[in-house]
């Protein structure tokens, strides 16, 4: 359902994503794991059609996300990093806007709206302005909008970031409930989340994929048999290379000055 083929994206002199390839099938929950600045969000944005790759291609349901953007986006639910939403709107209004923009109306809209609000467990908070909600409920409102049209593909960028343990459990339960029928790609840097929710882990560091395994297989790649150890080992080289590049750039600037 999701295919990334040699994706590449450059911002000025920085190569943020460098030849990233992986696939996610229906029924899989794949963790896209990496340190801050590794290229996770940029990759997800290319798959969501928010950014176009400089080279390579992203596909959703067999459709090219750059060439057939709107058709691909029709199959997609996307929760951006930070779960942005309109603060003056209520979660119900926000979900309704998303559904209307996707062509829902009448009874179909009302049914999808009620289902999304219920799945996101918004309760009476569905009628309050999003700006007045806690971080957890804001995230649930954005999540409700992302799943409202019951898309077969879900891309969630750090869905539990900043939530308290109870709220995290709520989101994880929801993802587990949806998992059998959807292809779900979750960007995260929380290792407990990977163990709790994901059937496979794709590790990215310095814009490159450094591992693509089940969480158990990935843990075995570390020096101590844990996910944390494997994560540090797989990302250390990229971080060191980044450090070296930053130092070289700083020295070059000092020299020029």
């Amino acid at each position: 359902m999701i295919e990334a083929e040699l994706l590449e994206k450059r911002f000025g002199p920085t190569l943020a994503v460098d030849g990233v390839s992986f696939a996610v099938e229906r029924g899989e929950v794949v963790a896209f794991l990496g340190p801050n600045g590794a290229g996770k969000s940029t990759t997800l944005r290319m798959i969501a059609g928010v950014l176009e790759p400089d080279s390579g291609r992203a596909m959703v349901a067999g459709l090219d996300c750059a060439l057939n953007r709107r058709e691909a986006q029709a199959y997609l639910g996307y929760l951006p990093e930070g779960a942005p939403a309109y603060p003056a709107m209520t979660p119900r209004g926000f979900v309704r806007f998303h559904l209307r923009a996707r062509g829902f109306s009448g009874a179909g809209l009302r049914h999808a709206e009620a289902r999304a609000l219920e799945l996101a467990r918004l309760g009476s908070y569905a009628e309050r302005p999003i700006g007045a909600l806690s971080k957890g409920y804001k995230r649930r409102a954005a999540l409700a909008a992302a799943i409202a049209h019951d898309p077969p593909v879900l891309i969630l960028d750090e869905p539990t970031d900043g939530l308290d343990p109870n709220q995290k459990d709520g989101v994880r339960d929801l993802i587990a409930e949806m998992a059998p029928k959807k292809a779900i790609l979750i960007s995260t840097h929380l290792l407990d989340e990977v163990e709790a929710m994901c059937s496979r882990t794709v590790v990215i560091a310095g814009g490159r994929i450094t591992a693509d395994d089940t969480p158990v297989e990935l843990a075995l790649k570390g020096p101590d048999g844990t996910l944390g150890g494997a994560f540090r080992a797989l990302t250390a080289d990229a971080l060191r290379a980044e450090d070296r590049a930053n130092r070289a750039l700083a020295e070059e600037r000092e020299g020029a000055a």
Binding site: A48, A74, L76, Y78, P80, Y86, A142
Partner: peptide, 14 residues
């Protein structure tokens, strides 16, 4: 500024 542009661009809205 609010980041909602990303959400708009990810929706099938021309």
């Amino acid at each position: 500024d609010r980041g909602t542009l990303e959400m708009l661009l990810a929706a099938p809205i021309p």
